[in-house]
Design a protein around this nucleic acid. Structure first.
Lengths: 273, 273
DNA sequence: CTAAAATTGCGTACACCGTACTCGGTCAGG
DNA sequence: CCTGACCGAGTACGGTGTACGCAATTTTAG
């Protein structure tokens, strides 16, 4: 069982219109749009082949004339939902990265199924490629070199993905309506109380009492700010100056951080179990 | 369709041993171990109820005496695979966070199914809670206050999750053995070539030529270094002095929406144990 | 204009999934 | 002892993705 359909050209190279037979009634884009609609409102697992076909008023097997496998449906759904929005580079790295991160988060919030799907597949759809090209262009406009750009983009993408997934799970949990939600609390609370009552979790207990769980927006902003600080600290971005890349284990002389080399070696050796 | 089993106490509160009847032949832990074994070697979707039962030499429905729903199986699998490893705080924030991040990454790499599952559910298993407690303790040992700790932990967890998922997808793709892999390249390459040939992707083209895709280890290290720089830049933790927290959003040029972010939570003293 | 070829729509069927229901065997408490 | 709780497990149901086959439709060749 392969992740993508076996043999045959990739889905993006298949011509939409046949050369000889009758004209197709539907299109990949249309099918994807319906699937996205269902997935957005009822969850990704509700976007079954039969359900999509029913909405389109056709038979289930018809869809396989357009998409050779369910995995290909996911592929086009992802690319369709990702869409493409242009972004003009302002030259200010921090501002541009902020815009970039926010746009990405908004897309993920709009399609709660998107982040998990995107995170577990290699995607190369045209929209995705256009987005990549745009991001590269934006960062190039900020004076970053190619390698720096790749690192920074990797970092932002990974973090936004992880952060929004956390946000979405929490939201999905909070969205349980009425009775359902109440029942969940009823089931969960005695367990948590019993755990904390053991006294084995002093820090956790204190956290529950002391620290308020901030809004998702605020937490995203906090995390982003820290990351941007790190990026600025590592790459000199003073509007246009092509910053030389500094080696990883070596930080600026800003905060008097103590012996970095030993720190890293120690950390490495501790990863084994 | 609820994410967790409806009504009834949470899985962790169910007693393993019955009060009255005959003793159970198996246990939740044993079932979870088998499921993890299957998922590690054949993928999570191979860990079906029937497959697990077959390995245990019992009927499929038997498992439902131990786990009321498949979702509960996932719950115990996650908690079991997460495990618990102690970590002594050294007091050096950078070193401790590095250790923490590396440990987390290693766990995710050991169980490729874990990151996606963990990212999409609220988890409160005992191992997870112990891990949380340990992380809080470690960061408290570095002189961070509760709110700072929560932010930092959030950031690290989100990023490690996102980064490792990206790494895993790439690895899964590279792991396709022999013919399969070759076939995939054969199908993919003409598409990519045709895309780049349009001339619409100058930056992407240059990236493909110029920039080598680094090893996963190296990329992880790079990302982590940047994040740690950010954390050190924001929270002055050098040699234990508890510093003031800088506000977040003092840059201009961000998108007009969602821009209200500031860390308005008052810094709380971390001295009161 | 007609016949062949290509292609679509789609019903049927199959294997697999999670799991509700059921029932007989087994053990502990009265 | 008996009674009731509990375990193991077979059967069955509704769901999934999809392989196969066939009639209908359109395009092309002669």
């Amino acid at each position: 069982m392969a992740a993508v359909s076996d043999s045959k050209p990739i889905i993006w190279m298949r011509p939409e219109k046949p050369a000889r037979g009758p004209a197709p009634t539907h299109s990949r884009g249309q099918i994807a749009a319906v699937a996205i609609d269902i997935a957005d409102s009822e969850g990704i697992e509700a976007a079954s082949v039969r359900a999509i076909a029913k909405r389109l008023g056709t038979g289930a097997m018809t869809l396989y004339r357009y998409l050779p496998a369910k995995e290909d449906l996911y592929t086009v759904m992802i690319d369709e939902a990702t869409g493409f929005e242009p972004q003009e580079p302002t030259g200010d790295l921090r501002a541009d990265l902020t815009t970039l991160a926010h746009r990405r988060r908004q897309i993920f919030l709009r399609h709660p199924w998107l982040a998990p799907l995107l995170a577990t597949r290699p995607i190369m759809g045209p929209n995705f490629m256009r987005g990549m090209e745009r991001d590269l262009a934006v960062l190039a406009g900020c004076g970053l070199g190619m390698d720096e750009t790749v690192d920074v983009l990797n970092l932002i993408h990974s973090w936004v993905g992880g952060a929004v997934q956390a946000e979405l799970t929490e939201r999905a949990n909070a969205d349980r309506s009425g009775v359902d939600r109440h029942a969940w609390r009823l089931r969960m609370e005695p367990y948590l109380k019993s755990l904390l009552a053991t006294g084995e979790f002093p820090h956790l207990s204190r956290m529950v009492q002391v620290s308020e769980i901030g809004e998702a927006d605020e937490r995203f902003e906090n995390g982003l700010a820290i990351i941007l600080d790190g990026i600025e600290a590592r790459f000199s971005t003073a509007t246009g100056t092509n910053g030389a890349r500094r080696p990883v284990g070596d930080t600026d002389g800003g905060p008097p951080a103590t012996r970095r080399a030993t720190v890293q070696r120690a950390a490495r050796s501790s990863t084994t179990e």
